[in-house]
Nucleic acid binder design. Structure first.
Length: 727
DNA sequence: ATACGCCCCTAG
DNA sequence: TTAGCTAGGGGCGTAT
């Protein structure tokens, strides 16, 4: 079978191979099996006749992929486009499971089959094998649908064209190589050659580089609080590229200190970091030329995009303009990469130093030009301005536009300060943490914008993320403080009474260090170790996100010892430490928000009082009557999580029905009552965003739907049909 | 009890 | 062998 498949690949002769995690699972698995079975004719999958497909393990640490182990293959003439790598690189998600990603982007779910029952399915009957076959086919077709829907190939091809790189390198290498490619292309055309800088001279004198190599951007000390007046935001457009262009910062224009005396003072510029670069009149830097061309090309692409009507052409042009912008922004980081192909700290340090001067000047100018105005915050390339008490939104926007124009005039071209938006109202919690209603027009708010707080961080459980998001929405959109307080008390009550689904309490953190490399104990690293001892095959590996819940444990046991695999906790009925979730995860984030709008005593009242009285719901012994009020429609079996087409349990779990329901009822008997209350929540995870009964959080292990009428039942069936496969 | 550093993730 | 950058908040383990 393996040899036939290999022959099939050569016969089809594809340019590109895709799949989900094929680089680190499928292909290594096939190669290893072939070796074990001595299928000598198998490992010839490339286009080079007689070229053997070899596998190599590499340890990667890059911002594009995160830290992880990876494999590379000799596969001449074909490109491996692993959609898992594409998703990890291009999308910032909480979960990268094919199931979750497909549901989110193409509204389809995988036919999930838990690994533990694959053998049973294979050895069962024609129906169980059919299920296995459906699972395999879906696994193959979903990545391709994903690639089509997200236009990944189009976008990567545009990036390859913009940078002059081979397509395959975009998949397997980082951002730096793009800049190297751009430099080679431009330098060769201008008779310049790029030195091959040995590693040792890249880090001169000071020893190993650990920690920052030069000073970065300014973050203006925030004037924290809740602002009921509109806050105007001014941003420099492409700040770092425009600084590099405006000041001719380049490898080819850098003047070494010892050479400064050879030049007339007017021939060079001394930057705020004390470095010297010759003026463009003497020599124009190739970085400036590259950046100008990239940004000019982007303008052209955007102009064409505006005129284009054909959807495919539009997609291509949009991909191109994004690629051009990304490439321009990568140049600064490349110059500052101490362990890189061509580091030049004079360029990066000068760039950030100019940036610091510019944001300071902007702040000073705003406060000088507009008496009574105050810059309440700013970060790197932006300032947030309160123009005055009681100002209208349209006046704030008008002043913002005017200020941007006046201040732009103070800087050399092509630096441009732009008015983009107002926040109204605005909650400023601390540096890099804020939320506000964002307005770009006066007739309607665009959306709620949230930065840095718990709801946008992937290392918080859904409960915390959902509660913080909902509270901010109630406060900023509805502006209803008492509703926010009521909502918080309600959720705390639900938590303490064990009424929340376990999926809400799952925390996940990335495993960034190999076994034994962690210097202190953390929940996710200790748990990963524990799971390796249980089953090395399914334990998280380097670079994976490790999901866990905090369980009760014994007194004074540290949290890292009480972290448990959520599925394990569910299956072994391990008690969750609700109090820990309240005190260590919910409390402080909520306090930080409410402190800005309530007196201390009222903030404290959120966490004490009637609703915090813990009620221990005893595990019901024979309360199946409670369950009868629900018609359960599960996409995955409530017992073993494998995919099913109807009902609640798969045929393997059905005989254990009573036992499984009893386990689930211990947590969920009060669901109906709980969710009938004031807030529109998803029945699975309480996400306040959803209008429907079920939200799109497909990683919830248990799915419920409340059914009251025949129509509800029909709707539910229709919904399920979407996930069925039509043969 | 407190200071400090490891760790994760985000802003820009 | 390979990897864009710095600033910063905040949780928690560990040493004092």
């Amino acid at each position: 079978m393996l040899v036939a498949w290999s022959r099939f690949v050569r016969a089809v002769d594809p340019d590109l191979l895709t799949g989900y995690n094929i680089v680190n699972f499928d292909l290594p698995y096939l190669l290893n099996r072939a070796e074990k079975l001595r299928a000598a004719a198998f490992p010839f999958l490339g286009r080079m006749v007689g070229g053997r497909t070899k596998m190599r393990s590499v340890q990667m640490s890059s911002s594009a992929f995160g830290r992880h182990e990876s494999k590379s293959f000799t596969l001449d003439g074909r490109v491996m486009m692993d959609m898992l790598q594409v998703m990890k690189r291009d999308y910032h998600l909480r979960s990268y499971s094919l199931n979750s990603v497909s549901a989110q982007f193409i509204g389809e779910q995988k036919e999930d089959v838990h690994y533990s029952i694959i053998t049973q399915l294979q050895e069962g009957d024609m129906y169980t094998r059919r299920r296995l076959a459906v699972y395999c086919l879906k696994d193959a077709i979903l990545p391709q649908r994903l690639m089509d829907k997200l236009l990944s190939l189009t976008n990567y091809m545009e990036m390859a064209r913009v940078t002059g790189m081979p397509l395959g390198w975009l998949m397997s290498r980082g951002h730096m190589i793009k800049v190297v490619s751009l430099l080679h292309r431009k330098a060769a055309a201008t008779q310049l050659y790029i030195p091959d800088v040995p590693r040792s001279s890249a880090q001169d004198g000071g020893g190993a580089a650990d920690g920052p190599q030069y000073d970065g951007a300014t973050v203006i000390t925030p004037k924290k609080g809740f602002y009921k007046d509109p806050i105007a935001t001014l941003d420099f457009a492409s700040l770092y590229p425009s600084i590099m262009m405006a000041n001719n910062l380049c490898y080819s224009t850098l003047v070494q200190p010892k050479d400064a005396s050879l030049l007339r003072p007017e021939d060079y510029l001394v930057t705020p970091s004390g470095d010297r670069f010759v003026r463009p009149s003497l020599k124009k830097g190739i970085l400036s030329v590259i950046l100008e061309e990239l940004l000019a090309a982007r303008k052209a692409a955007k102009r064409e995009l505006a005129a284009a009507t054909d959807p495919f052409l539009r997609a291509v042009l949009d991909g191109r303009q994004v690629a051009l912008k990304v490439s321009a922004n990568a140049v600064y980081g490349f110059t500052g990469a101490a362990v890189g192909k061509l580091p030049c700290m004079e360029i990066s340090a000068s760039t950030t130093a100019f940036g610091r001067e510019m944001i300071e000047l902007t702040r000073a100018e705003v406060e000088k030009l507009y008496p009574g105005a105050s810059v309440i915050y700013g970060d790197t390339d932006s300032v947030m301005i309160k123009f005055g008490e009681g100002m209208s939104l349209s006046d704030a926007m008008e002043r913002g536009r005017e200020a941007a124009e006046r201040i732009t005039a103070l800087f050399p071209k092509p630096v441009k300060l732009e008015f983009e938006k107002c926040y109204f109202p605005y909650l400023l919690i601390s540096k890099k943490r804020y939320a506000g209603q964002l307005w770009t027009r006066t007739d309607a708010a665009d959306k709620m914008d949230t930065k840095g707080v718990e709801s946008v961080r992937r290392d918080n459980c859904r409960l915390v993320a959902n509660v913080i998001d909902s509270v901010l929405k109630i406060l900023l959109e509805e502006r209803d403080l008492s509703a926010a307080v009521a909502y918080v008390k309600h959720v705390i009550g639900e938590l303490l009474q064990n009424r929340l689904d376990i999926s809400l309490l799952v925390v996940s953190k990335q495993l960034t260090k190999a076994e034994g490399k962690y210097e202190s104990n953390t929940a996710h690293s200790v748990l990963a170790e524990k799971m390796r001892k249980r089953d090395p095959g399914t334990a998280p590996s380097l670079g994976d996100r490790v999901p866990y819940v905090i369980t009760r444990g014994v007194k004074a046991q540290p949290a890292y010892d009480r972290a448990e695999d959520p599925l394990y906790a569910l299956e072994h009925n391990v008690a969750i430490d609700n109090g820990y979730y309240l005190e260590n995860m919910l409390r402080k984030p909520l306090e930080r928000i409410f402190e800005a709008m309530l007196p201390p005593a009222s903030v404290a009242a959120l966490f004490s009082g009637e609703h915090t009285r813990s009620i221990f719901v005893p595990t019901p012994t024979a309360r199946s009557g409670g369950m009868m009020r629900f018609t359960k429609v599960a996409l995955s079996c409530l017992g073993c999580k494998s995919a099913i087409q109807s009902g609640a349990l798969c045929k393997y779990c059905a005989p254990r029905e009573a036992e499984i329901y009893q386990r689930l009822l211990g947590r969920s008997v009060e669901l109906e009552k709980a969710f009938a209350s004031l807030w529109t929540e998803c029945q699975r995870c309480m996400g306040s965003v959803c209008q429907e009964v079920l939200c799109s959080n497909v990683d919830c292990p248990i799915f419920y739907r409340r059914i009251k009428t025949q129509k509800d039942l029909d709707d539910a069936s229709k919904k399920l049909e979407r996930f069925a496969i039509d043969w």
